[in-house]
Structures are given as structure tokens and as C-alpha cells.
Design a protein around this nucleic acid. Structure first.
Lengths: 135, 135
DNA sequence: ATTGTGCATTGATGTAGGTCAAGAAGTGAT
DNA sequence: ATCACTTCTTGACCTACATCAATGCACAAT
């Protein structure tokens, strides 16, 4: 966990085509971290854009209070979502959603899944058609 | 703040064309809230997709410990970012970024702004050209 | 059985933004 | 001054997804 005293850091992911996607800028007084707690593989890189002075803190996920833990988890979920919205096409976002929330799929109409993925119901219908064709 | 005992809730925003964008599904044991703390205007609606049993909790932002407060703020920023990625075109996302982080613009190359916005440097260059034309 | 209502699908067409390739302009190193 | 390197810009073309409009389909109400 890095606290920026002066300067400017960034965190970013790299997609499967090698393209960088900046997740966050961290100027003075910001805290930036890769959030790779527990199960989820860490997918952020961090580096300095300007010469910077940094304070490094060890964080221990296991020592967090339970409600702080759930906030951190929520942040991780949002982080994944932001990165996918920036770097993955709708098909991959859908597949990731199906894997992550298999139960939700059964319970909500497709147009709501589309709405969550950031696409139209029509587009989702065509994606699903593609997927079923390739099996 | 709603804790879902049973059933399924969703939170969603409505963009300026009247289109809904689902921000989150909340099945059993999830907590869902509109997060409209302090300054930021609340832009989430919440409703039930299935018949649900809910526990309502009052949350008091002022009573949070300071590091919990900063986690909540971070979540709010991410929430805004997710919603904008789903519902706003690149031009609006850029303008919002400029307004929100005017200092960052001065300090990082444009291709990194583009990377943060989820577009290519070429696209950003064209957006900026458009903007300067219309003034 | 029939009518309505909401959801999913399909087709035709439009568009925002991506990709690729080529300059142009600034900056530092020799 | 020149070369190398990077950033930004511009043009031509391409693609993923949106939009609009029509159709089919399930299910509930009468």
C-alpha cells in the first residue's frame, strides 16, 4: 500500500492484446494499492509518472474488521468491473458475469443482464446466439 | 442501507435519454445502498426484482471512522466511473474528468488520459478538436 | 379462444470509436 | 546541427455495438 507524499503514481492493467488501461491516478496524499487480496489474482501494475516520494505500508487483510473487509471486497468487485468495461468486449464481460454470478442469470430477465453489462438487450441476444452456435 | 434477507434487489441509474443502467444486483445477504453521502448527488434508484425481505439500517456517514470514510469515498468514485462507462459517451467522460481532476490534466500525457477514459489517444485527440471548434 | 402485455429475437441500417499508417512538433543526447 | 525518441495529430478505413422496426412467443386476464 503506497501513500503518495509528493509526485504522481498510476495503477493500470494490461489486457490480452498488451494494451494498458489506467485504473487510477494517485497525486499527493492519495493512497494507491493493488488490492490483490486472497483469492482474486492481482491485475494491477503501479508505477510513477513523476518523481515521487512514497510511504510504503504493509497491509494485512486478515486484520481488518469485518465491515472494513466487506468494503474492500466491494472495491475489488468494482475495480474488476471498471477494468472490464474499459478493456473487454461485451462477449467477455457476459461470460465473466455468467461465471461469477451463475445464479443471477436464472433469476433476472435478459434485458437486465444487458443493462448491467452496459449493452442493449438486442446485442446480448446476438452474443448468446453466437455462443450457442459455437458449441 | 438495505440488507437483503431474501429475494433480489437491484440498483440502477437513469441517463439523460431515460435509459436504465443497472449498477448492482443484490441477492440474499447482500447489502445495497445509494451511497449519496454529502456532496455528491445521489444517482441510484433501488427496487425489488423479486418479492423480498429487507432489513433497513440508517447509516450515518459522520460517525464512520476516518479510514472507513475514505473507503466509502473510494467506492463512490468507482460507482460514478462504472455508471459513466456504461452510460456516457467519451466526450462527456472527458469533460467530467477535466472538471473533477483539473490538475491531473496538466501533469500527464494525453494518451494516459485516454487510457483512463477507456478510449484511444487518437479518439481523445479528435474529441478535443471538436471541443475547441465549438468555442 | 382471444386479447393484451412484456420479453426475446431478427433484420436493416447508422455511428462512435478502433485500427493502421503517415506526418508534425517538441525534447534530449551526442 | 542532427539523430533518436516520444507525443500529438490527421486521414482512410473497419468493426462492435446501437437504433429502429417488425415478428414471434409465452403467459395472464377476460
Amino acid at each position: 500500500m503506497f501513500t503518495v507524499e509528493s509526485g504522481l503514481l498510476r495503477s493500470y492493467s494490461i489486457d490480452n492484446k498488451g494494451k494498458e488501461h489506467i485504473y487510477m491516478f494517485a497525486p499527493e496524499n492519495w493512497i494507491i494499492t493493488d488490492n490483490c487480496e486472497g483469492d482474486i489474482p492481482c491485475d494491477l501494475y503501479i508505477d510513477a509518472i513523476e518523481d515521487s516520494t512514497i510511504t510504503v505500508t504493509e497491509k494485512d487483510f486478515t486484520k481488518l474488521s469485518s465491515d472494513r473487509k466487506s468494503l474492500v471486497k466491494r472495491i475489488n468487485v468494482l475495480q474488476k468491473r471498471v477494468i472490464m468495461l474499459m478493456s473487454s468486449p461485451a462477449l467477455e464481460r457476459y461470460q465473466h458475469f455468467v461465471e461469477t454470478y451463475p445464479d443471477i442469470i436464472q433469476r433476472v430477465p435478459q434485458r437486465m443482464i444487458a443493462s448491467y453489462l452496459g449493452i442493449t438487450p438486442e446485442a446480448l441476444s446476438r452474443l448468446r446466439k453466437e455462443i450457442s452456435k459455437n458449441k
